[in-house]
Nucleic acid binder design. Structure first.
Length: 245
RNA sequence: CCUGCGG
């Protein structure tokens, strides 16, 4: 088995999925059965390559033959489907995971929530987060950010900020990425002044804006015809040793 | 060891 796994691993690494799958089914036809390692490798590779049709086929075969994916493989699978916008399929896997005795973790929930949010299914996403709490899993900053991002893309900044403070009262404090989501959203909505207010708040919290934030602010200042202010900021950034592009 | 957030 170890030898086949090496072979499968090699084929996957060189992008030869078709060959890897054929190789495995040939072994099966010869009466050999693969183990979890084989499936995990092959499926992990298929996820990365976004060969989702092949992945779900293989998943069914795997489960049918009595092998359950590991937690991280479930997460890779579910996330791959979410990223492809296939949230329905992802949710099916989620239930398959549960019925197979698997316990979703915060990554699983976060991937699905992210997928639902990207599809604009905010209500469903929130329900999902409720389920997660029922599972005694506390949202972490990454999950909060997913929700904040979803609100901010629909321009609902009031609620996005409310979620931000709820998260802080939960002991999760906004980080640079959190601010980035909010600031970029505000810039997109041409609310540069509000964005700069958040920038100040961020400084007050001892956080330093990164390039993502700086370029968002600068480009929207330019877009608003406020080049004088933009230039001033660029000078200030340059003075503090920032590289300007 | 492989899997989740802004860019």
């Amino acid at each position: 088995v170890e030898f086949w796994n090496e072979t499968v691993d090699g084929l996957c690494r060189s992008g030869n999925f078709q060959a890897a799958i054929q190789y495995v089914s040939k072994l099966h036809a010869g009466g050999f059965s693969s183990n979890m390692v084989t499936y995990n490798m092959l499926l992990g590779a298929l996820c990365k390559a976004q060969r989702l049709e092949a992945a779900s086929k293989l998943l069914d075969e795997m489960v049918y033959s009595g092998c359950m994916p590991t937690l991280s493989l479930w997460n890779s699978l579910i996330d791959a489907f979410c990223k492809a916008g296939e949230t329905a399929a992802a949710l099916q896997m989620f239930s398959k995971m549960r019925s197979g005795g698997g316990s979703p973790d915060k990554l699983t929930f976060s991937s699905v929530t992210h997928g639902l949010c990207k599809k604009g299914k905010l209500a469903e996403a929130n329900r999902f987060v409720e389920d997660m709490r029922k599972d005694k899993i506390a949202p972490d900053i990454l999950l909060w950010c997913v929700l904040i991002e979803a609100l901010s893309v629909i321009g609902n900044f009031d609620e996005a900020l409310e979620v931000t403070s709820r998260m802080a009262s939960d002991g999760c404090f906004p980080d640079v990425a959190t601010y980035s989501i909010l600031i970029k959203g505000l810039c997109r909505a041409n609310r540069v002044n509000d964005a700069m207010r958040l920038l100040d708040e961020m400084h007050a919290n001892g956080l330093c804006p990164d390039e993502v934030i700086n370029t968002a602010i600068l480009t929207s200042l330019f877009r608003a015809g406020r080049e004088d202010e933009a230039i001033k900021r660029i000078d200030k950034l340059a003075a503090s040793g920032y590289r300007i592009t």
